Computed example of a mutant assay.
Amino acid sequence: MNLQWKGVMPAVTTKFTKDDQLDLNTFEVNIKAQLQAGVHGIILGGTLGEASTLTDDEKRILIEKTVEIVKGKVPVVINIAEQSTKSAIQAAQNAKKYGAHGLMLLPPMRYKADDRETTVYFKRIAESTDMPIMIYNNPIDYGIEVTLDMFEELKSFPNIQAVKESTRDITNVTRIRNRFGDRYKILCGVDTLALESIAMGADGWVAGLVCAFPKETVAIYELVKAGRIGEAIEIYRWFMPLLELDIHKKLVQNIKLAEVATGIGTEFVREPRLPLAGEERKRVLQIIEKGVKSRPTLPNFS
Rank of each mutant, 00 (worst) to 15 (best):
N25R: 09
G49E: 08
T13C: 14
P10F: 02
D23H: 10
F27Q: 10
R60K: 15
P10V: 04
L48K: 02
G49K: 07
G38K: 01
A51R: 10
E28G: 00
T26G: 03
T13A: 12
E28H: 01
F27L: 05
M9A: 07
D23S: 11
L35V: 07
A37V: 00
V39G: 01
I61Q: 14
F16W: 14
L62M: 14
A33R: 14
G45M: 11
Q36K: 14
A11F: 13
A33S: 12
Q34P: 03
V8R: 00
P10Q: 06
T26V: 14
T17A: 11
K32Y: 07
K59C: 10
Q34T: 02
T47D: 03
D20P: 03
D56W: 13
T13Q: 08
V39P: 01
T47M: 09
K15E: 15
L24C: 10
V8M: 00
T55D: 05
Q36I: 04
I43G: 05
E50P: 03
S52P: 05
V29K: 15
T53H: 09
D57M: 15
T13Y: 12
T55R: 05
Q36E: 15
I43K: 07
Q36S: 13
M9E: 03
A37G: 00
V39K: 02
N30F: 06
